[in-house]
Simulated scan of single mutants.
Amino acid sequence: MFIHNLGLENSVLNQFVLELRDVEIQKDSMRFRKNIERIGEILGYELSKTLHYKDKIIQTPLGAKKVSIPEEELVLCSILRAGLPLHQGLLNYFDKAENAYISAYRDHKDSEGDEDHFEVVVNYLASPSQQDKTLILADPMLATGKTLENTYRAMKGHGKPKQIHIVSVIGSEQGVSYAKNVFPENTHLWIAAIDEKLSSRSYIVPGLGDAGDLSFGVKL
């Protein structure tokens, strides 16, 4: 896996990540969603540099001009519900991409009260064919990596993509390492920050909390 940790570079991206983490600023859910969307735009822009391009001649009012444009067919898939703002940021730049949505949640029903043990359950998927296309998976929090693993398995019935890109806001070192062992070697991970550890409940530390709840309200 090729890991692109853009948080190690000096850019405005780090300001958006700071605001996502700040317990006072994140009380504004609209700003929280917007910051994730803006991070999606930045990560998408960097990702776009690795795509294949073709030349196209366009006609302007004053003449003709050759322009290089991406030639790949893209499928953009977000993991509900936390992935929606990130999906929108990517869609702002990849507006011609086909779209897929998948639900995944942590199921603790067999853990007997142990919050550290859970299964990731996928029970909804809407996707076009991915055969020979470029798949972009949008999941803002790469904690354990199990959600991405189950998502990848669930989507295999929709064709084999020729290339996979994972886009995340914050990940843990453990989750990144886990994903490296699950996805093909030529997979690219685009991420804004990687934190050192997970809590006993498998949340990223220091992380930012629950991205879904902060974006859309606390769930039951």
Rank of each mutant, 00 (worst) to 15 (best):
R81Q: 07
R81D: 03
A82Y: 07
L84K: 12
L86M: 04
Q88P: 04
L90E: 11
L91C: 05
Y93E: 14
F94V: 00
K96P: 00
A97H: 06
N99D: 11
N99T: 15
Y101W: 10
I102V: 05
S103K: 03
A104D: 06
Y105F: 13
Y105I: 02
Y105P: 00
Y105W: 06
Y105N: 02
R106L: 05
R106F: 10
D107G: 04
D107H: 03
H108S: 06
K109S: 15
D110Y: 14
S111I: 02
E112K: 13
G113K: 05
E115H: 03
D116C: 08
D116L: 07
D116P: 00
E119A: 09
E119H: 12
V120R: 10
V121N: 08
V121I: 15
N123W: 04
Y124I: 10
L125K: 09
A126Y: 11
P128G: 10
S129D: 10
K133Q: 11
K133A: 12
T134G: 09
L135N: 06
I136F: 13
I136G: 12
L137E: 09
A138P: 11
A138Y: 12
D139F: 07
D139H: 12
M141V: 14
M141T: 14
K146N: 15
K146D: 15
L148F: 13
N150W: 09
Y152T: 05
Y152I: 07
R153T: 15
A154Q: 15
K156F: 07
K156A: 13
G157V: 03
G159I: 06
K160R: 14
K160D: 09
P161S: 15
K162C: 07
Q163L: 15
Q163I: 09
I164W: 08
I166D: 00
V167K: 12
V167F: 01
S168V: 04
S168A: 15
I170A: 01
I170E: 00
I170N: 06
G171D: 04
G171T: 02
S172F: 05
Q174D: 09
Q174N: 04
G175M: 02
G175I: 12
A179P: 03
A179F: 07
V182H: 10
V182I: 12
F183P: 02
F183C: 09
P184E: 08
E185F: 06
E185S: 07
N186M: 09
N186S: 13
N186H: 10
H188T: 00
W190H: 07
W190Y: 14
W190I: 01
I191F: 00
I191P: 01
A192D: 05
A193F: 01
I194H: 00
I194S: 11
I194F: 00
D195C: 06
D195I: 03
E196G: 13
E196C: 03
K197M: 05
K197N: 13
L198S: 06
L198Y: 04
L198A: 07
L198T: 01
L198E: 01
S200L: 10
R201K: 15
R201Q: 09
S202W: 01
Y203C: 10
I204E: 02
V205M: 13
G207V: 09
G207P: 03
L208A: 01
L208W: 01
L208H: 00
G209C: 04
G209Q: 06
D210S: 10
A211D: 02
D213T: 11
G217N: 03
G217D: 01
G217M: 02
G217F: 02
V218K: 12
V218T: 03
